[in-house]
Amino acid sequence: MKRREFIAGTAAILVSPRRSGAQGTPRRIGFLGAWADEPARDPAHAAWLRGLREKGWIEGKNLLVEYRYARDRLPALAAELIALAPDLLIASGPAAALALKSATATIPIVFVAVFDPVGLGLVRSLSHPGGNITGLATTAGVAVAKQIEILRELVPGASKVAILVNPDNPMHRLALAEEIPRTARELGVALPIVEATKAEELNSAFASASAQHAMAIIVLGDYLTVFESPRVIALAAEHQLPAIHLFRQFAKDGLVVYGPDLADIWRRAGSYLDKILKGTKPADLPVEQPTKLELVINMKTAKALGLTVPPSLLARADDVIE
C-alpha cells in the first residue's frame, strides 16, 4: 500500500462516527406497540419523547427508534425488531411486552403501561423483576371494586354495571378469569361483559350494555379505548350510561376518571431507558408503580346525565371540571 493511501485510510477510520468520541454512535432501540397506528396519534407519545429529552436523548440524533405497530402480528414484528440487534426494546402495553419477552432473553426490555406485570408473568416480583425485563406498571390499587364503589356513589342503587373489555388484551383476560367474577360475588352486583377488539365493534358493545339494562359502565384501560376516546365518550352519552375511565384524557368530556396519569408514566419511562443504555441491568431496576391516583369528575357531563354528585365524592376529587 502506498504511504499516501495508508495515511488517508487511517484518517478516515479515526474521524468516522463509529470511532469518534465527539460525535458518538447513535443508540438504536426497538419500539413495539399493540395498536396499528402512527406514533403521533398516541396521546402519550409526546410525553415519552419529552422524558427522553430530559435525559439527553433526542430521537433522530443520538437515538434511533424503530417502530412496529400491529394488533395481530406482534410475534412477527418482535422478531423483526430483534433481527435489527437493538440496544434496548420498548414494549407498549401488555400484549407487546409478552411478545418481546417470548422472543428474547438477552436484549433489555422496558415495558410501559402494564396493569399487573407479576400476574401476567412478565416479572418475578415488582422489587426484583429478574431476567432482561422491567418497566412501569399502571397498577396501584385501581380495582374493579373501587370503580364500582365510585359509580354507586354517582348512581345509588346500581345493581348492574357493564364492563367494556378487549379480549385481545391479556390483562383483560386475566381480570375476566379472576377479579371480575370475585368482585361480582363479593359485592352482589351483576357485571355483564361487553366486548370490542376494534373500533367498529364499540357501537355494538355499548348497545349491548344498554340492551342488558346496565345502569353504568366501566371502561377498562386499553389502547383501543385510548385511541378511540372521543367515540367511547360519545357512545356513553348516547346510551345515557354513566362511565368510569382509567386515564385522564377521558376527563374532558367523560363523567369520571380514577387512575394514574398515563402521560406521566410514559415521561418517566425515559429514565429507565437512560439507565439501561448507560449500563444498568433490567434485573436491577424495580418495576415502578404510579405514585398517585387521580379522581376527576366532570360536572357538566354529570348534569347532562341527570346525576347529582354527592358532596363526599366531590371532597375526595383531585379535580372537578365545571
Rank of each mutant, 00 (worst) to 15 (best):
E5A: 09
E5S: 15
F6C: 02
F6M: 12
F6E: 10
A8N: 11
A12D: 11
L14W: 09
S16K: 01
S16A: 10
A22R: 15
P26M: 15
P26K: 14
R27I: 04
I29A: 06
L32I: 00
D37I: 07
A47G: 00
L49T: 08
G51M: 08
R53M: 13
E80D: 15
A91W: 07
A95C: 04
A96S: 05
L98W: 06
T104H: 07
T104K: 10
I109P: 00
V114G: 02
P117T: 12
H128W: 13
G135C: 02
T138R: 09
T139G: 15
V142I: 10
A143Q: 15
I148N: 06
L151V: 05
V161A: 00
L164G: 02
N169G: 03
N169F: 10
N169C: 03
H172L: 01
L174M: 12
A175C: 01
P181R: 02
E186H: 01
V189K: 01
A190N: 06
A190Y: 01
K198P: 00
E201L: 10
A209I: 06
A211K: 15
D222C: 10
D222V: 04
D222K: 06
T225L: 05
T225E: 04
H245K: 02
F247Y: 14
F250C: 03
K252L: 13
K252Y: 12
V257K: 02
Y258L: 12
G259N: 08
D264G: 05
R268Y: 05
A269C: 10
G270A: 06
I276H: 03
L277Y: 07
P282M: 11
D284H: 05
P286T: 04
V287I: 08
T291V: 12
L295S: 01
L295T: 06
I297S: 01
T301W: 04
A302C: 05
A304R: 14
P310D: 09
P311M: 12
R316F: 05
D318G: 01
I321D: 04
